[in-house]
């Protein structure tokens, strides 16, 4: 498997995915889509970790990805539960409708 994939390219891919995730979070009004975009961002970060781990031949990158995975699982479960409650209270998933603070 000693294919010469340049690490810069992998990092560029991770950066692209991350930025796409950010764009998704900003432009979407639906909470579910925002949560999906957050997942994309998490994956992008994980990709960067794994690329770095492979680059230095260290297991730490993969360990970090596993932690990210655990964190994502917990986040998604709590986040989805919150979405359920929000939907039951507001009858909507529009994030702008939840703006109750007037600043």
């Amino acid at each position: 498997m000693n294919t010469p994939i340049a690490i810069e390219i992998v990092m560029l891919l991770a950066g692209l995915l991350f930025v796409l995730g950010i764009v998704g979070v900003i432009i979407r009004k639906n909470i579910i889509f925002m949560l999906l975009s957050v997942e994309i961002m998490l994956n992008a970060a994980g990709l960067a970790f794994i690329a770095a781990g492979s680059r230095w031949a260290q297991p730490d990158g993969q360990v970090m990805f596993i932690f990210i995975l655990a964190m994502a699982a917990a986040e998604v479960s709590v986040g989805l539960a919150l979405i359920l409650r929000i939907y039951h209270q507001h009858r909507s998933l529009d994030i702008d409708k939840l703006k109750e603070m007037k600043g």
Partner: peptide, 17 residues
């Protein structure tokens, strides 16, 4: 600064970016 605490999630994320 309290104007930035608008409760708008989008606004917060833009701040982060």
């Amino acid at each position: 600064l309290s104007f930035t605490q608008s409760g708008s999630l989008r606004w917060y994320i833009i701040g982060l970016v």
